[in-house]
Design a protein around this nucleic acid. Structure first.
Lengths: 129, 129
DNA sequence: TGTACATTTATAGATATGCTAAAGTTTGCA
DNA sequence: TGCAAACTTTAGCATATCTATAAATGTACA
């Protein structure tokens, strides 16, 4: 039984889902609180269609859950530890030498924004943020 | 400055590199010891060309280092913690319902083979993914 | 040298992914 | 009912990735 092949394939699929900047940003933002498509669209500065399509990918891979609330659809991160684990991956990235300076400060900003911020128990939320 | 975008993009790139079963298997095997293309080819059961192409991806992303030794080229995992971190991702995979049983045992086999081997005596396993 | 061995690079067709724009759904409310 | 808001889905196209095959490079050694 090629268990190694099985596990590697599943991991590869997971990594494939995570191999898009927008999807990563969505997961990191959802770590803090449940958000609607409209809110995410504003945060990310892309069309609602694009947001929705990326959410569909995350949804079909069971990383997020949708919760309808009236006309809005809130998205919820199933396993908040996922966002933490993703950020741990930052120590393995290797930016171009020319951009090292920028990257280092960007990483620190991202870490403090996504890594340390506290997270409240998800419930109905308002727009804004 | 869109530091979030910068970091997300770099992470996405890393995940993209990891989003292939062969590349994951290579990294896990290299965790234990440096290996040549020929050895990897036998372990993975694919052509030497395919191995080399995947190694080129890992190499150009600085995850492995090549070390020529006569006619052979040994590959070395730059950051062994990377393999550990990758395996931690196993807790976020979501296999098809029909394959859950198989996956659970495959995961445990993989964990003991890649996770514990050459380090400490087999520990008690928990968590079922 | 020449040749066998180990590995890398080049190429091409098939597949997959992502974006834009447009159409389709569901819900709330007058 | 009918209409608008908030989303999702579909379609088409451009781009990226994968796999396999073929050719090229580099090294050891007779």
């Amino acid at each position: 039984m090629p268990y190694r092949a099985v596990v590697s394939a599943e991991l590869a699929k997971l990594f494939g889902v995570l191999s898009h900047p927008i999807r990563i940003r969505i997961l990191e933002e959802l770590k803090k609180e449940d958000l609607t498509v409209g809110t995410l669209k504003d945060m990310l500065g892309i069309t609602h269609s694009a947001v929705s399509q990326q959410l569909a990918v995350l949804r079909s891979n069971h990383l997020v859950v949708e919760m309808r609330q009236g006309r809005n659809v809130f998205y919820h991160l199933r396993r908040p530890e996922l966002a933490t684990w993703i950020m741990d991956g930052v120590s393995f990235i290797s930016p171009d030498a020319s951009e090292v300076e920028k990257m280092i400060s960007a990483i620190q900003s991202a870490k403090s924004a996504w890594g340390d911020e506290k997270k409240a128990p998800p419930r109905r939320k308002k727009r804004g943020a």
